[in-house]
Amino acid sequence: MSTQDWIAGFRTPLVNPAEEIRLAESREFAGETLRQVVRLAGGGSRLRVRLSNRYAATELVIGAARVAPRENGDAIVSADEHVLRFGGATAARIPAGGEIVSDPVDLAVTAGTDIVLSLYFPEPTGPAAFSQLPGESGWVVAGDHTGAGALPGAEETTSRYFLTGVDVFTAAATPVLVAFGDSWFEGVGSTHGANRRSVDVLNARLTRGWAVNQGISGSRLLSDQIGERGLTRFDRDVLAVPGVAAVWVNFGINDLILAGAATAAELIAGYTELARRSHAAGLPIYVNTIGPFAGAIYPGLTVADGLPVRTEVNAWLRDSPLFDAVFDVAAAVEDPARPGFIRPDYDSGDGMHLNDAGARAMAETATIPAFTETPTPATV
């Protein structure tokens, strides 16, 4: 029996470029190289890359693909660059709605390694499935420059396209925590490119395994509008993650402030269903209370109507026996002098998202035993 296996070292969920509500605009590529940076949550002796043509109406053609450690900015460590192959070929065609996994690459990586994925698209891609606000830059340049050491003059983008994950070959017993939720996981409000999201902060504290980030900014538990609803994407974005051993949940704000806002009863039913499905799969589930949002500066939100519902749902969460633990993020980041508002020193400036200090405070509420304790050796 092998003691090693493929485990998720990085994950990023994608949204439909034709979403009803868009926080960023997708784009098409044609005759261009796209270079993207990935911070790995965990390492291994080899890696493989996952690409998706989800939501597309046309075939996606990958003309060339390479992976390498990052030097800085858009520059790679050329001496350790590797060509990606797909079924032995250096090019690939992904059908509309399809997914592909690269062949393994003999590139040893560790937790915290930044790797750079370069993709060349020789034919028009159509609007790309993408992560809207991943908190990391990418670069686009005309022509096939997948093997270039750097891309001077390239256009910078702050979204991530086609990429859904990186797997690493490591100890089969490595546990993966899936952070499943919204922008408070994806990291809106934290410093761009600095990896100071709440999930990053938690990873620095874990002594076993690691956490991968399946947060979508604007995501709702109960409704589609910005990405598929949490209850719909749970199987793909949690249960299908290789190595998943537990799930950490943060939803609620978007369910309460966007059009068609949920009632307390509806949100409670949604959380209850998440707990049922997690436990049915043998996974512990850890849930955050819903953070404050009274200071949200964006127009058209149902903030006043959502605040009392938040209070009711949080009271239920704090007392609920359905979860393996409830982390009181709301209490940790709320302004004691102004209930419903984020503390000024934790507010990113928009009244609805946390800055770096707030993300750290959020992460510090989380204690997850299986990831911080040394397992007891099995007896024979």
Rank of each mutant, 00 (worst) to 15 (best):
E99A: 12
V212E: 04
A111R: 13
G187W: 14
G88L: 07
H82M: 03
P152M: 12
P95Q: 00
H82L: 04
S102F: 14
A96C: 11
Y161H: 14
L151Q: 10
G88W: 08
F86Q: 06
V105L: 02
D144I: 08
E136P: 06
R196L: 09
G126K: 15
G135W: 09
A92Q: 10
I94G: 07
G181K: 02
E99R: 14
A142L: 13
N203R: 01
Q132W: 10
V116W: 05
I100C: 07
T146S: 11
G143T: 12
Y161Q: 07
G193N: 05
A96Y: 11
G143L: 11
V188A: 05
A91T: 11
A108W: 01
P95I: 00
G215M: 01
A211K: 03
G165Q: 05
P127H: 08
G165F: 02
R160M: 13
A129T: 15
A142I: 11
D114T: 05
T125K: 11
G87M: 08
G88E: 08
R208F: 03
G193A: 08
T125G: 03
P124A: 10
G87F: 02
R160D: 07
T191I: 01
T110V: 13
Q214L: 02
E136F: 09
A154L: 08
W210N: 02
D167P: 07
V109C: 05
V140Q: 15
W184K: 10
T207Y: 04
I94R: 09
F185G: 08
I115R: 01
L151K: 13
I115F: 02
A150K: 13
E81W: 06
T146K: 03
W210L: 01
S131T: 15
R220I: 00
S118A: 15
F130A: 10
S190H: 05
V176C: 04
A150Q: 14
G88N: 07
V101S: 12
T174K: 14
H145S: 10
S198Y: 06
R85H: 14
V168W: 04
L151I: 09
R160G: 07
V168Y: 07
G193T: 08
S183Y: 06
S102K: 14
Y120G: 10
V168Q: 05
G165E: 00
T174S: 15
A211P: 01
L177D: 00
G215E: 00
L117K: 05
G126M: 13
G153T: 02
L202F: 07
F130M: 10
Y161I: 03
S118L: 13
S183V: 08
L119R: 00
P104L: 07
A148H: 11
P95K: 00
E186V: 03
A129D: 15
D114L: 11
L206G: 05
V166M: 06
T170A: 04
W139F: 14
R160A: 08
S131W: 13
S131H: 15
G87Y: 03
P175T: 03
D167F: 03
P124D: 12
H192R: 12
V201I: 14
N203A: 00
G209V: 05
P127Y: 12
P122Y: 07
W184M: 12
D200K: 09
V176F: 05
R197E: 01
N203S: 00
N213S: 04
T113C: 10
A91V: 02
Y120F: 15
A128R: 09
G143C: 11
D182R: 00
T191C: 04
L163E: 02
G181V: 00
A211F: 04
F185M: 12
V105P: 09
Y161G: 03
Y120C: 10
G88Q: 09
W184Q: 14
V176S: 01
